[in-house]
Design a protein around this nucleic acid. Structure first.
Lengths: 146, 146
DNA sequence: TATTGTTATACTCTATAACTATA
DNA sequence: TATAGTTATAGAGTATAACAATA
């Protein structure tokens, strides 16, 4: 038994739990043509309106190359708009259209439905504790990235 | 404020935390040619030696079709072996080779390294609480699937 | 020179559907 | 008929590298 025998198990539990949630969400969102990557991009953009594509790539933790086709598709579906950046002629500023904002509402509804369903078996107190611990973990993890 | 305003946030936290862990793991395992799907298949097979491909697909929660190329690749790399099922001539029994078992050890090492690194900022008590809550969540979630 | 975003290309993972060989 | 596994085909998501335009 080493210094922390449960670190590995903790990682496995985290991934397994997330997988349960993601698979449920993927199925539910899929009915509305919303893939995980699209949802992530839309909600990220909603939190940071006017982001450039590079900003989005950094925030999402993916390569710049991965953003282009996603934005292409979302733009062609009328959910987001590319606008020229007045300060940098190489860049675009991305914004949600009215349709995109309506989709954000739909996403929020679906997320709430899936979340309440999936966490319904967990007592409220456990849910609160879990949220607190996950927040603490994310704080320490993101602090170490800098 | 509805019955449980934090369910959505809890889902987001769970996915975000898992993503931190997975991205770190993906990078680390990738150095050894171990993709997430390969690791999942190998560790699952290690827990259930002699599984048939259909069993693996069910356990992994993917289509049968997704298993074939994975098994092909792992077999051609000498990590697993297909053996005819004596009771059903349509089916294969999969087993880990010695090389596959060595890879399992390597995977365990890497998982431990990544886990200890990523959870190092979280006090031991929080880690234990987090593990307990995730286990409780998985229990309720998998109970509902039946 | 460095950076923004694109095109070109390729890889991993997954799915559905049609097929074969067995059950 | 149903099932185990394969082949065929397709799609999403991502990566690296090379490029154009701009900083």
């Amino acid at each position: 038994m080493s210094s922390d025998p449960s670190a590995t198990e903790l990682g496995e539990l985290l991934v397994a739990a997330s997988r349960v949630f993601s698979q449920q969400g993927r199925a539910r969102f899929g009915e509305y043509g919303l893939s995980p990557a699209r949802v992530r991009l839309l909600t990220t953009l909603h939190r940071r309106p006017g982001s450039r594509m590079r900003d989005l790539a950094d925030t999402l933790g993916v390569s710049g190359r991965a953003v282009t086709p996603l934005v292409d598709a979302l733009e062609s579906d009328g959910l987001i708009a590319r606008r020229a950046d007045p300060d940098d002629r190489r860049a675009f500023r991305l914004t949600l259209t009215d349709t995109g904002l309506a989709t954000i509402d739909q996403i929020a509804d679906l997320q709430r439905q899936v979340s309440e369903e999936i966490f319904s078996g967990l007592p409220a107190r456990d849910r609160n504790d879990l949220a607190r611990l996950l927040r603490a973990f994310l704080d320490t993890a993101s602090a170490r990235e800098c």
